[in-house]
Amino acid sequence: WEITFERNGKRITVRTTDHRLLELFEKLWRNGADERELERLAEEINR
């Protein structure tokens, strides 16, 4: 799966075969987690 999240013109794409990681990322994104931390998390998930 691949999903791109966008907020205030900032886009972060997450790619993984584990839908649970996408759900976790989406919850953090929707709850306003720090964008720098989300970028780092996305990099780890995308590996």
Score class of each variant (00 low, 15 high):
residue 47 R to W: 08
residue 25 F to Y: 02
residue 9 G to A: 03
residue 25 F to G: 00
residue 15 R to Q: 08
residue 17 T to G: 10
residue 32 G to W: 04
residue 22 L to S: 02
residue 27 K to I: 11
residue 14 V to Q: 00
residue 36 R to H: 15
residue 31 N to E: 15
residue 13 T to W: 02
residue 31 N to K: 09
residue 37 E to D: 10
residue 16 T to Q: 02
residue 47 R to D: 10
residue 47 R to C: 06
residue 31 N to Y: 06
residue 21 L to G: 02
residue 23 E to K: 12
residue 34 D to A: 09
residue 11 R to S: 13
residue 30 R to Y: 15
residue 35 E to A: 10
residue 45 I to T: 01
residue 32 G to E: 08
residue 25 F to H: 00
residue 32 G to L: 05
residue 39 E to Q: 10
residue 36 R to I: 15
residue 19 H to Q: 14
residue 7 R to D: 02
residue 9 G to P: 00
residue 11 R to I: 13
residue 30 R to C: 08
residue 9 G to H: 03
residue 23 E to N: 10
residue 10 K to F: 15
residue 21 L to R: 05
residue 28 L to G: 02
residue 14 V to G: 00
residue 9 G to M: 02
residue 19 H to I: 15
residue 42 A to T: 03
residue 5 F to G: 00
residue 35 E to Y: 14
residue 37 E to L: 08
residue 12 I to Q: 01
residue 22 L to N: 01
residue 45 I to G: 01
residue 31 N to L: 10
residue 42 A to I: 10
residue 1 W to S: 06
residue 29 W to Y: 10
residue 28 L to M: 13
residue 16 T to P: 02
residue 13 T to Q: 05
residue 17 T to N: 15
residue 16 T to C: 01
residue 37 E to A: 10
residue 1 W to V: 11
residue 40 R to H: 11
residue 24 L to D: 07
residue 24 L to G: 04
residue 20 R to L: 12
residue 1 W to Q: 08
residue 8 N to R: 03
residue 21 L to V: 09
residue 33 A to L: 08
residue 30 R to S: 12
residue 9 G to Y: 01
residue 20 R to P: 05
residue 45 I to D: 01
residue 46 N to E: 09
residue 29 W to M: 09
residue 9 G to D: 06
residue 15 R to D: 02
residue 44 E to L: 13
residue 35 E to C: 07
residue 25 F to A: 02
residue 3 I to V: 15
residue 35 E to V: 12
residue 20 R to F: 12
residue 29 W to P: 01
residue 18 D to L: 03
residue 26 E to T: 12
residue 6 E to V: 12
residue 1 W to H: 11
residue 42 A to V: 09
residue 4 T to M: 06
residue 27 K to T: 15
residue 46 N to Q: 05
residue 3 I to P: 01
residue 23 E to S: 12
residue 39 E to H: 06
residue 19 H to M: 14
residue 10 K to A: 06
residue 24 L to I: 10
residue 46 N to L: 08
residue 4 T to E: 06
residue 3 I to E: 05
residue 20 R to T: 12
residue 6 E to W: 05
residue 44 E to I: 13
residue 13 T to P: 01
residue 36 R to V: 15
residue 24 L to A: 12
residue 39 E to V: 12
residue 10 K to P: 01
residue 16 T to G: 11
residue 20 R to K: 13
residue 24 L to F: 12
residue 32 G to H: 11
residue 12 I to L: 07
residue 28 L to Q: 08
residue 37 E to T: 14
residue 47 R to I: 11
residue 13 T to I: 07
residue 1 W to P: 06
residue 7 R to T: 11
residue 15 R to M: 08
residue 42 A to E: 04
residue 28 L to E: 10
residue 20 R to Q: 12
residue 39 E to N: 05
residue 5 F to S: 00
residue 22 L to C: 03
residue 28 L to W: 10
residue 26 E to S: 08
residue 2 E to A: 03
residue 28 L to V: 09
residue 22 L to H: 03
residue 18 D to P: 01
residue 8 N to M: 04
residue 3 I to L: 13
residue 3 I to C: 13
residue 16 T to D: 01
residue 36 R to P: 07
residue 9 G to T: 02
residue 41 L to C: 05
residue 20 R to W: 09
residue 37 E to H: 03
residue 26 E to F: 14
residue 14 V to N: 00
residue 18 D to G: 03
residue 45 I to L: 06
residue 19 H to A: 14
residue 7 R to K: 13
residue 7 R to F: 10
residue 31 N to R: 05
residue 21 L to A: 14
residue 39 E to L: 10
residue 39 E to K: 06
residue 8 N to Q: 05
residue 12 I to K: 00
residue 42 A to F: 06
residue 47 R to E: 12
residue 1 W to L: 10
residue 16 T to S: 11
residue 7 R to H: 08
residue 4 T to P: 01
residue 6 E to K: 03
residue 36 R to N: 14
residue 13 T to Y: 05
residue 41 L to Q: 02
residue 9 G to F: 02
residue 47 R to A: 15
residue 46 N to D: 05
residue 27 K to A: 11
residue 46 N to G: 03
residue 33 A to Q: 05
residue 18 D to A: 06
residue 37 E to P: 00
residue 41 L to I: 10
residue 22 L to V: 10
residue 24 L to Y: 12
residue 43 E to P: 00
residue 7 R to L: 13
residue 34 D to G: 09
residue 32 G to I: 03
residue 17 T to K: 12
residue 41 L to H: 02
residue 33 A to T: 13
residue 20 R to G: 11
residue 32 G to Y: 07
residue 29 W to A: 04
residue 46 N to I: 10
residue 6 E to P: 01
residue 11 R to P: 06
residue 20 R to E: 11
residue 10 K to D: 03
residue 13 T to D: 02
residue 35 E to D: 14
residue 11 R to Q: 13
residue 6 E to S: 07
residue 10 K to R: 09
residue 27 K to L: 13
residue 22 L to R: 05
residue 40 R to S: 12
residue 21 L to H: 10
residue 2 E to Y: 08
residue 20 R to A: 14
residue 28 L to N: 05
residue 15 R to T: 11
residue 26 E to H: 08
residue 21 L to W: 11
residue 17 T to A: 13
residue 5 F to H: 03
residue 6 E to Q: 06
residue 45 I to E: 02
residue 4 T to D: 04
residue 41 L to P: 00
residue 12 I to Y: 14
residue 32 G to R: 02
residue 36 R to F: 15
residue 6 E to G: 01
residue 34 D to R: 02
residue 30 R to Q: 13
residue 2 E to N: 05
residue 14 V to W: 01
residue 46 N to R: 04
residue 34 D to V: 13
residue 46 N to F: 08
residue 34 D to I: 15
residue 29 W to C: 05
residue 44 E to Y: 14
residue 46 N to K: 04
residue 8 N to K: 04
residue 4 T to L: 04
residue 19 H to S: 12
residue 14 V to I: 15
residue 32 G to P: 02
residue 32 G to D: 07
residue 21 L to N: 05
residue 27 K to W: 12
residue 15 R to G: 03
residue 37 E to Q: 10
residue 41 L to D: 00
residue 5 F to W: 06
residue 14 V to T: 01
residue 24 L to Q: 12
residue 29 W to L: 07
residue 33 A to P: 02
residue 38 L to D: 00
residue 44 E to F: 15
residue 19 H to G: 09
residue 7 R to E: 02
residue 20 R to I: 11
residue 39 E to T: 11
residue 10 K to T: 13
residue 46 N to W: 07
residue 25 F to R: 00
residue 46 N to Y: 06
residue 13 T to A: 03
residue 4 T to H: 13
residue 35 E to K: 03
residue 15 R to K: 14
residue 13 T to V: 12
residue 31 N to D: 15
residue 33 A to R: 04
residue 29 W to K: 03
residue 47 R to F: 11
residue 46 N to C: 11
residue 24 L to W: 11
residue 42 A to W: 07
residue 36 R to E: 15
residue 11 R to Y: 15
residue 14 V to K: 00
residue 34 D to F: 14
residue 32 G to C: 03
residue 39 E to P: 00
residue 34 D to N: 12
residue 34 D to C: 03
residue 8 N to L: 04
residue 25 F to S: 00
residue 3 I to F: 12
residue 2 E to T: 08
residue 42 A to R: 02
residue 45 I to M: 07
residue 1 W to C: 10
residue 2 E to C: 08
residue 39 E to D: 08
residue 1 W to N: 08
residue 17 T to H: 14
residue 13 T to H: 05
residue 13 T to K: 07
residue 12 I to R: 00
residue 33 A to I: 10
residue 29 W to Q: 03
residue 31 N to V: 06
residue 38 L to G: 01
residue 8 N to H: 08
residue 11 R to V: 14
residue 27 K to N: 14
residue 23 E to F: 08
residue 9 G to E: 04
